[in-house]
Simulated assay, not measured.
Amino acid sequence: MVRFSAMRLLKCGVLLSSMLLSSCGFHLRGDLPLSHFPAMHVQSQRHSELASLLSTRLEQNNVQLLKSYQQSAPVLQLIDDTLERRTLSLFPNGQVAEYELIYRVRYALTMPEGEPQNYQFELFRDYQDDPNQALAKAKELELMLGELRQQAANRIMRQLSRLH
């Protein structure tokens, strides 16, 4: 009898917490309310990795991607994404020991019959260089750039979810 009531209490606790979370507007990451964008055209440079990440995220959030421009649909234009690096420290022999990576993204959102709204942001990472392990460091830099693109796509998606 005690086991039955403990299980029942657990079920009630789970039900109560899920009701509280859903009533406060909580959403799981990646599950953004983009119902105000039923269809959208994404415009970017050819073979842009950030554009393909964004397209995938938009499709996951039930936004139909249009192949070409349509007046009745919003346009998300990825103007550019660049990676810049700044020297932070040097080895005693003068070689660079540490860089600061700066990933800069510029994009514009044009709503139907509206003016383009321009946005820009920067993401920062520190990167330690070792000339003795150039191949491993090149792979690490590639992975870090992939993470920065993921973060940039998440940030753009959050911005889109806030627009109405």
Score class of each variant (00 low, 15 high):
Glu98Ser: 15
Thr82Phe: 04
His47Met: 09
Pro92Ile: 00
Ser89Pro: 11
Ala136Tyr: 07
Pro131Gly: 04
Thr87Leu: 07
Gln60Gly: 01
Gly146Phe: 03
His41Lys: 11
Phe124Ala: 02
Leu58Ala: 07
Arg155Val: 02
Asn61Pro: 05
Leu54Gln: 01
Ser72Met: 09
Met1Ser: 14
Glu84Gly: 09
Val105Ala: 00
Arg155Lys: 14
Phe121Gln: 00
Met111Ile: 06
Gln71Val: 03
Gln64Glu: 13
Glu49Thr: 06
Ala73Gly: 03
His27Met: 06
Thr110Ile: 09
Arg86Leu: 08
Gln45Phe: 08
Asp130Thr: 11
Gly30Asn: 06
Asn118Ile: 01
Asp130Leu: 04
Gln70Ser: 10
Pro116Phe: 03
Arg162Ser: 12
Pro131Cys: 00
Cys24Val: 10
Leu58Asn: 02
Gln151Glu: 15
Gly146Leu: 13
Leu109Phe: 08
Glu98Gly: 10
Leu34Met: 08
Arg57Met: 12
Leu50Ile: 02
Glu140Ile: 00
Leu148Cys: 15
Gly25Cys: 06
Pro131Leu: 03
Ala138Phe: 01
Leu145Cys: 07
Leu10Ile: 04
His164Val: 06
Leu10Pro: 01
Ile156Pro: 01
Asn154Gln: 13
Phe121Asp: 00
Glu59Gly: 00
Asn61Ile: 02
Tyr127Gln: 04
Ser48Pro: 05
Gln60Trp: 03
Gln120Ser: 14
Leu163Lys: 14
Leu16Glu: 04
Met40Thr: 00
Gln70His: 06
Glu84Trp: 01
Gln60His: 09
Leu123Glu: 11
Ala51Glu: 05
Leu66Arg: 10
Pro74Gly: 11
Gln43Leu: 12
Glu49Lys: 13
Leu135Gly: 03
Lys137Phe: 00
Leu148His: 04
Leu16Gly: 09
Ser72Gly: 07
Leu54Met: 14
Ser55Tyr: 01
Leu32Asp: 02
Cys12Ala: 13
Gln150Asp: 15
Phe121Tyr: 05
Glu98Leu: 10
Ser22Ala: 10
Arg3Ile: 03
Val2Met: 03
Asn61Asp: 08
Ser44Phe: 03
Asn62Gly: 05
Glu84Gln: 14
Gly114Ser: 15
Glu115Gln: 13
